[in-house]
Amino acid sequence: MSNREETVAQWQAQDKAVRAKLAAPGVASLEQLKQYSGVEFLQAILRGELPIPPIAQTLDFNLIEAEFGRVVFQGTPAMQHYNPIGSVHGGYFCTLLDSALGCAVQSALAKGSGYTTLELKVNLIRALTDKTGPVRAIGKVIQVGGRVGVAEANIVDAEGKIYAHATTTCLVFPLP
């Protein structure tokens, strides 16, 4: 078995284990959000204690890992994600990256804080197709302060090849 095949098998096993724990799609209440720090909130989703966001079901991707300052989302591009010119739509890239970027910022927030994306910059480096296999959007915090959070993310395949790079600036605010 090649390194790529081993990595794909590991990624698929991790995805299967995470999916087995996930709750039904939905949106957490403001009261639920206030109960957790950002990383605790994301980990509660991974444990199945809080609903997964509906967009994850729509585009068939999942949060796979969440720790302070770093998150990983995984999806497998398929024909359902194609645009009319024969490759995966840029919106798929952007959604995976925005999820990884925003949640990386969220992972560094204290209890009682929220965020929203102010700016998203995406560089699509190469096409995704239904033959690419699983990909991961890996988001990492650059800096999170009292008002602004900045993060970066890459979409990579099982060989570590980069398909897209993105950065974000998020507004950080106290939850009402």
Rank of each mutant, 00 (worst) to 15 (best):
M1R: 07
V8L: 10
Q10A: 09
Q12K: 11
A17T: 07
K21E: 13
L22C: 05
G26L: 04
A28K: 06
S29R: 12
S29M: 08
Q32S: 14
Q32V: 08
L33Y: 07
Q35R: 15
G38S: 07
G38E: 03
A44S: 05
I45D: 04
I45R: 02
G48T: 02
L50A: 06
P51D: 11
T58V: 13
L59C: 13
L59Y: 11
F61V: 04
N62Y: 06
A66K: 09
E67N: 14
F68G: 09
V71A: 12
V72Q: 10
F73S: 11
I85C: 13
G86P: 12
G90H: 05
G91C: 05
F93L: 00
T95Y: 05
L96I: 01
A100S: 14
C103M: 12
Q106W: 04
S107D: 06
S107W: 09
G114V: 00
T116K: 10
T116R: 15
T116S: 11
T117D: 08
T117W: 06
L118Q: 15
L120Q: 06
N123Y: 11
I125D: 15
D130R: 06
D130T: 12
K131R: 09
P134S: 08
V135I: 03
V135R: 01
R136Q: 03
G139C: 12
K140Q: 07
K140Y: 10
V141L: 06
Q143N: 10
R147D: 03
E152G: 02
A153R: 01
I155H: 00
I155F: 01
V156G: 03
D157A: 04
E159T: 14
K161Q: 14
K161W: 04
K161H: 13
H165K: 15
A166V: 06
A166T: 09
L171K: 02
V172W: 00
F173K: 00
L175F: 04
